[in-house]
Design a protein around this nucleic acid. Structure first.
Lengths: 250, 250
DNA sequence: ATAAAATCGGAACCCACGTCCCGTTTCGCT
DNA sequence: AGCGAAACGGGACGTGGGTTCCGATTTTAT
């Protein structure tokens, strides 16, 4: 955190942006945040521009693509989750902490359609961000398991999948199911003792034998260490676009 | 099952279709079934026509819209589930039956993307079909609860939601999670006795206070007794179209 | 065999959206 | 104030997909 900056130069992250540009960039980001929150990736870019009171050209001046804009609005939320998890790493009562944390993530995400889209896989994971979340959650999980608050046979992959399923359920939940019920049920399924069902064992190999989620062709090896979801930028972008429209079309 | 048909008339359900028309109709249905199964509602209609070896016009001669075609390919699967549930109504060991049934539905659905799309809400429920499934499952659930195999505080709505969440998870499940694991976890969460969490109570009123799932405006009262998902045909169709594209775009 | 009717095929149409382009406006500096 | 460069806006473009239309073709009745 030491200040290491050439003397008399402005902060390198806002490199001489004209004032109107800086203002508009902020307007766009804010409009995008609220629009994506309400309607997920489905919101058309023109709508965001409209809300921000700028033209679409302006949006593209600041963000190279809709995806980049979307990512910019989502990354910091995930980062927030990660930070919170890290803070809870040494808290008392790891079991309660783990379950409360899960419920909180669901509760905070479920109102944010964009975040849901991102977590459910519309977005190629941003390098570092998703891994960070996963690692932080892993620690919480392992502590909870050591405290015998969570059954030992679930893995971090199970929990991540469960988390997304939980989101999916709470989102699609009709008016006759109370908010949080699905989360509560899922949390119970993670508790130790008396589980009747022996879980099918997870495969030992991690590397991706699944094809591209869009076209089915093999995916190239990924730098991040986790299997890539799509075989290339074209498929990824198409999948985003399509999934984007999926929820709302206003 | 008695034969009650005016003498010497062909079956009333194939009323004087020209032979080539009947053949093409069958070709289209078959192509649609396999295409939807593989790619869900996302598959373009032209692709179905291509697979069937006919033109798009022919498809439209037999089915008024893509949605109608989709529905035709899906309804009988759901009907099959319903029939199976009805047969199991008086089986021994209601607890085991209930859980096996749930797992089977998930297992059979998860490979059928179209069915998943339909169950997850891409489709306005076909009158009768969804209700039938729901009622049959209700009976299985109640018997399992009477047999103390399922916790008493879950409702049929919970189970329906859980079922869809299960589908969602098993579909998105990465290669590092074994098939069926999520289902097993969820089934465990329904078992009695081990739940720590008190479920948030479900609201007493059933009628729809949620807006249209597409545009948010209030939905008109529905004849089926269940709240409608969309406020009108336009929104419903748009939502279908859009959700259709969502998963794959080949 | 012939003609009317039903059916077919696929090009044409329409719409929504992401992205690009370029004439116009605004900013910051002198 | 005046100038050059940066930024703006919104129309143009390309694509993809559902639906419609109509001339060509096949079937069926006579």
């Amino acid at each position: 955190m030491a200040r290491r900056r050439s003397p008399a130069s402005p902060p390198p992250l806002a490199p001489s942006l004209r004032s109107d540009a800086r203002r508009n960039r902020e307007l766009v980001l804010q409009a995008a945040r609220s629009a994506f929150e309400e309607a997920g990736l489905a919101v058309p870019l023109g709508e965001i521009a409209r809300r921000a009171g700028v033209g679409t050209g302006t949006v593209y001046r600041h963000f190279p693509s809709k995806e980049a804009l979307f990512r910019a609005t989502v990354v910091d939320r995930v980062q927030l989750f990660t930070d919170t998890a890290r803070e809870l790493t040494h808290a008392d009562d790891p079991g309660a902490v783990f379950f409360r944390y899960l419920a909180a993530v669901v509760r905070l995400s479920v109102r944010n359609k964009g975040l849901c889209d991102a977590l459910e896989g519309s977005l190629e994971p941003s390098p570092g961000v998703e891994e960070g979340f996963r690692e932080a959650l892993t620690i919480l999980l392992e502590r909870a398991q050591q405290a015998v608050a969570v059954r030992k046979d679930v893995t971090i992959d199970d929990v991540m999948a469960l988390l997304m399923g939980c989101l999916s359920m709470e989102q699609r939940r009709g008016p006759s199911v109370a908010p949080g019920r699905m989360t509560a049920l899922l949390c119970d399924s993670l508790r130790p003792g008396r589980h009747v069902t022996k879980l099918p064992p997870n495969p030992a190999v991690r590397r991706n034998e699944m094809g591209c989620a869009s076209c089915g062709r093999p995916v190239p090896a990924s730098r991040t260490g986790r299997p890539a979801r799509y075989c290339g930028g074209a498929c990824r972008q198409r999948a985003h676009r399509e999934r984007a429209r999926a929820r709302t079309g206003a």
